[in-house]
Amino acid sequence: MLKPIFWEQVMKKILFVGTAITVFILFFIIFYILKNGLAVVDMEFLLSSPKDFGRAGGIFPCIVGTIVLSLVAIIIATPLGVGTSIYLSEYTRESKLTSIIRFGTDCLAGIPSIIFGLFGFVLFVVYLGLGWSILSGGLTIAFMILPTIIRTSEEAIKSVPDYYREVSLSLGGTKWQTIVKVVLPSALPGIVTGIILGVARSIEETAIVIFTAGSVLRIPTSLFDSCRTMSVHFYILAREGISMENAYGTATILIITILLINAFAYWLMHRLMAKYS
């Protein structure tokens, strides 16, 4: 009769060890990068241009490139993503059409970035003649982050209680007025969360950027200029062994940025969910 209890103890220990290993590995990665990178990072590293292909100097152009590229992506993806989620949650019941749109969104979310890269390269860089530019890169990245924005906004819109809508409609508001004046303002933190997660994803992206925005190490002056993001810069520094020191420095900035952005997004969404549940 002792046996099941014995197994319970054994399994609990095994599962605990597995959990500990998982958490340890993930923390180790962050710790290791920060340990080696923080020494390199100072104001000069952030605000000066790279010299000698990145062997010396800072990463300022890459910071600018990263910001501009994610901004363009977000400006394109937000109206599409939020519009889709409004349609899915406010205008339709579950039907054949919505399930096709949902399936399409899931598929888009699963498509590897290299395929987006190939696609953006043929359509924007070659076919539409935009060249390797911020515009080509921003458009392609916008397509990649669309599913993230759709899902998060939909969740946020659905979390707005139905009586909010009923009150507005009973006061004579039209459906659109209800959405714009009642539903969207209440769901705003969640929608912003989706947009922020989209920013994080575009900062992480490497393959798409190389294929569609190029990797020119200069501060871009127009949307038709090529640019290099921090991820691409890090990749080139590390893979070609140009400068391990600056690679660690760049990775440190990347990781800190992403973790802060994700933590903020999580906090925002958590607040929204707590408010309505």
Partner: peptide, 9 residues
């Protein structure tokens, strides 16, 4: 949060 670490890292 850790899912957000860039794949190049």
């Amino acid at each position: 949060l850790l899912a957000g670490i860039p794949s190049v890292v």
